[in-house]
Amino acid sequence: MAFTPALIVVDMQNDFCVELKNAPLFVSGALDTLPVINKLLASDKFVFKVATKDWHPQSHVSFASNHSGESPFTSFVTIKNLVANKPEETMEQRLWPDHCVQKTKGAELVEGLDVSKVDLIVEKGQDERVEMYSAVSDSFGNQTHGKGGVSHDLAQLLKDKDVTHVYTVGIAGDYCLNYTALDSAKSGFTTYVIEEAQRCVDPGAWAAVCEGFKTGKVKLIAEDSEEVEKVL
């Protein structure tokens, strides 16, 4: 069986990883994942190493500050699939504090991440009208490369490099890592999530996320698993 692995490091950005007053979406324990992630980045077994970034305009629909009277974390709004010109398609969007705004310090990849080993940085969530947790498609499943939503067509780039297996790590396990891994599997890649190399916004949600991995054919593996040893 062919084995051509790639690594996707999801959203290791200051606004998620550094506990500062101006990082309102800090994910507890995020920096604890760096040793595992950097060990993977140092490996020459991966044919392609990608880092992703939330790269939101200040006007992004997911920011509570853009909705009068609404609060981050607790409020939800209904959004329409305007990207695909299908306003009849709607979904409930959880609202967040402003985060990873384009060209701000909070949107930068965290100090300590070995960016020198990264082949490509994918900037996602650029369309103000829709959420984009996954680095592959937005929350409605729209493929928006070339339409302003995301900087690269990640699934196609992986296919162009004949990738068969995708290893995913990063932040947050219950949101952007979760949906990136699920979309990777949908795109036809054998997809792994390394449990020790992720942290969640809501740690209590991890069990449900893992059940979703089973349904979505994403394989949850440990740092000391045979699958990880194979790429080190």
Rank of each mutant, 00 (worst) to 15 (best):
E70R: 14
Y175N: 15
V18C: 07
Q13V: 05
P24F: 11
A42P: 01
L232E: 03
K161A: 03
A2E: 11
V122K: 05
T191Y: 04
K49V: 00
L34A: 13
C200Y: 07
E227C: 05
H165L: 12
K217F: 00
L82I: 10
K219A: 01
D138M: 12
K53A: 15
V166P: 02
G146S: 07
E227V: 01
K105G: 12
N66D: 14
Q58Y: 04
I121C: 02
E196W: 10
A205K: 09
K219P: 01
E131K: 09
A23Q: 10
L154G: 04
W206H: 06
S68D: 11
V9E: 04
K159R: 14
K161W: 02
N38F: 12
L158S: 15
A42T: 03
N38Q: 09
N22F: 07
K105I: 15
P72S: 10
L109F: 11
A64I: 05
S139K: 05
I121A: 01
L95V: 01
A30V: 11
F213K: 06
S65V: 13
M132N: 12
C176T: 14
L109T: 11
K45D: 01
L220E: 02
G112F: 11
V169C: 15
E89M: 05
K147V: 13
G216I: 04
P87K: 01
L41I: 07
N178M: 06
K159E: 13
F46E: 00
V27E: 15
A185K: 06
N178R: 08
E70S: 12
A51D: 05
D98N: 11
D15I: 01
K117R: 08
V10G: 13
F73Y: 13
Q102P: 02
Q198R: 09
G106H: 04
F213W: 13
T78L: 02
E108I: 06
I194R: 08
V101L: 12
H67K: 10
K103A: 12
Q126A: 14
T52A: 04
V166R: 01
L7N: 04
G188H: 08
K105N: 14
H145K: 03
S139W: 04
V150Q: 02
K39W: 04
E92M: 05
E227A: 12
K105V: 15
F189R: 00
D11Y: 08
Y175C: 15
M12P: 08
E229Y: 05
E19N: 14
V228L: 02
D114F: 01
T104I: 11
E123M: 01
E226A: 10
V10W: 13
E88S: 07
S59C: 03
K219Y: 09
V36S: 08
Q102T: 03
K230W: 06
H99M: 05
M91D: 03
G149D: 02
A84M: 07
H145M: 03
G29T: 11
E123L: 00
L113E: 11
L232R: 07
K124Y: 14
A51N: 05
V166K: 00
P87Y: 00
D44P: 01
V9Y: 05
D183W: 09
N81C: 04
F63C: 07
A107F: 14
S28V: 13
P57W: 01
K217C: 00
M91Y: 08
S134F: 14
F189C: 00
V193H: 09
E108H: 08
